[in-house]
Amino acid sequence: MADYRLGIDLGGTKIEIVALDREGREVLKQRVPTPHGDYEKTVLAVRDIVLDAESKLGCIPGSRVAAGQASSTLGIGCPGSIVPQTGLLDHCNATWLNGKPFDRDIAHALHRPVRMENDANCFALSEAVDGAGMGKSVVFGAIFGTGMGAGIVANGRLLSGLHRLAGEWGHTPLPWLKETDLPLRPCFCGQEGCQERYLCGQALATDWLGEGHVSAKGIAEALLAGDEKAEKAVDLFVDRMARACARMIDFLDPDVIVLGGGVTNLPNLCERVSAKLANHITGGFPCETPIVMNKHGDSSGVRGAAWLWDVQESGACRTPDAAWPAGRFR
């Protein structure tokens, strides 16, 4: 086992690194701005923050460790997925990374193996290992923020799926449509009625303030102050989330649902959604699936990236390949 697990959370505006010791305690955390729109500089920024962290910790990659030296592993969480057939990143909101062999370039820039997964998968893994889902057999980690995504961890293993699409429920249709859901909202994926168009920050802002509004910041305070429009918007959000969770329980039946993302910071959200589940669960029996808030907050994603190198080897591993063009990153 390595002395340190390093995790990277790669976002559109910042790159964050965390180091966990063997007991999972955080011993280092730092961040730098993401070089917006520049692929090469993004690769180099990740390389540099990793090298700087290892220098501060006095460690080197586990594959090159010598006697008496501390070792480290590296996992990366990113807002997209590697397409298995091509090895290229896709569906990433940091659009300059799409169509690029990001994990391969990082492996070669650092001359070491890396593991990389979707950031929602990293969130779920973090909460399953030592967070709100700790000790549960099947953990469904759901993120509601700018978009909507999820990850599934079963018996300590991250489930990515054949096409690495497991947990991508944001682009499944919102179930049990009601008049308030119509007309179907168009989605950037090309379909209509995707859950993500009803259960993200912009959707909540639109229901609260009207078309053209993209941020729901302040809605929790407005709700507590008795704002009728805020109450109506949150009621719609809760009902839609309950329907989405009920459909997911029908086909996965997890031991716990862990919520994350900025949109989930609404008063009594877990309790309100739980109260509505029984209206939709198949069979009509009381639903006992606990819906809980995450333990690690904004750190869940980066901690999950670090845990990609646990003993069960979650996540896809990329090792430096001698045949890969040396290029500008070596």
Rank of each mutant, 00 (worst) to 15 (best):
N279P: 03
G301K: 12
L259Q: 08
G301C: 09
S314H: 04
E271M: 00
E313C: 07
S299R: 15
F251S: 14
V311P: 13
L308Q: 00
S314G: 15
V292A: 03
L266R: 06
P254Y: 05
D255C: 10
P286H: 10
I291M: 06
D310C: 05
A222H: 10
L224C: 07
W309M: 08
G283H: 15
P254V: 04
M241N: 02
V302D: 12
L252S: 09
E288C: 08
A233Q: 08
R247L: 07
P267R: 13
R247F: 00
M241T: 14
G297M: 01
A216F: 00
A275I: 00
V302E: 12
V292I: 14
A225P: 09
A220D: 13
A233L: 01
A306V: 10
L266P: 07
A275G: 15
D255N: 14
G297E: 00
A244T: 12
G260D: 09
R243Y: 04
D310V: 03
D239Y: 05
H213V: 11
N279M: 01
V256W: 00
I281C: 05
G260P: 11
V256K: 06
D235S: 14
K232S: 08
E221D: 14
T289D: 05
I257K: 09
R243D: 13
L269F: 03
G261W: 03
N265A: 14
V256I: 02
L266V: 04
G218R: 01
K217E: 15
T289C: 12
L308E: 03
C245D: 02
R243T: 08
G304P: 10
G283D: 13
A233F: 00
D253Q: 09
D310I: 03
S299W: 13
A244Y: 00
L259D: 10
A246K: 04
T282W: 11
N268Y: 06
G297A: 11
E231F: 02
W309D: 13
G260M: 05
V258E: 13
E221N: 10
E228P: 15
K276T: 05
R303A: 04
W307K: 11
A225F: 03
G261T: 04
K217R: 14
A222W: 01
P254W: 10
E271I: 00
R303E: 04
S314W: 00
C287K: 09
A246R: 01
H296L: 08
E231A: 11
V238K: 05
E231V: 01
G315S: 05
L252T: 09
D253K: 04
N279E: 13
P290I: 04
H213K: 14
D298Q: 13
G226V: 08
A305K: 07
A246I: 04
G226M: 03
G315D: 11
G226I: 07
N294T: 06
D239N: 10
G218L: 02
T282V: 09
D253M: 03
K229R: 15
G304C: 06
P290N: 07
R247S: 15
A244G: 14
D298K: 10
A244N: 07
L277I: 01
P286C: 01
P267D: 14
K217Q: 15
P254A: 02
G297W: 00
P254E: 07
G226K: 06
T282F: 11
D298M: 06
D253C: 11
T264S: 08
E231Y: 08
V263N: 14
N268P: 03
S215A: 08
V273W: 03
E228V: 08
C245L: 03
C287I: 00
A305I: 08
A216R: 02
V302A: 08
